[in-house]
Amino acid sequence: MIAIVLFVSVLLIGLAAGAIFVRSLGSAVILLGAVSLLVALAFLLLAAPDVAITEAAIGSALTTLVYVLALRRTDSVHRADTDGELGMERAGGTAKGAFKGAPRIDGVARAADGSVLQSGVSSAGASRASEAKGDSRA
């Protein structure tokens, strides 16, 4: 019992420090959801199932959803915090560079440097389509 409680406590402090100090805001919000779930587990270990159900429903479901909406509306999902210390260390302060190779999941086809090719096509299909367009032009 004491071993589980020690493990959960150490994980709790580590993830909460991560949520406050990590550079990317999206990661911080996900870490906060994980901390809420761990706190619900701690409530269960403390013989409080009522509170555990309430904390799991509110803290990890609703709060994370509202944070994600707030991040989306303030355009901060891929933005790097100027005074975060952990995580990605790109010069220039924006984390967009880290995702240069990965496709963005918003249904808009993008070339490798982020410029838009055509809408409604996935990026794997877009690269093939752009190659075909390049071939037909050449």
Partner: peptide
């Protein structure tokens, strides 16, 4: 931790995250 984060972070969303961490600590 939450108090330190709320005092020293410049990003406002980070401040709200720190307030949430204070809430969790007090509940435990």
């Amino acid at each position: 931790l939450g108090l330190y984060g709320a005092l020293t972070r410049k990003n406002l969303i980070r401040t709200v995250i720190s307030l949430d961490v204070i809430d969790l600590g007090v509940n435990i």
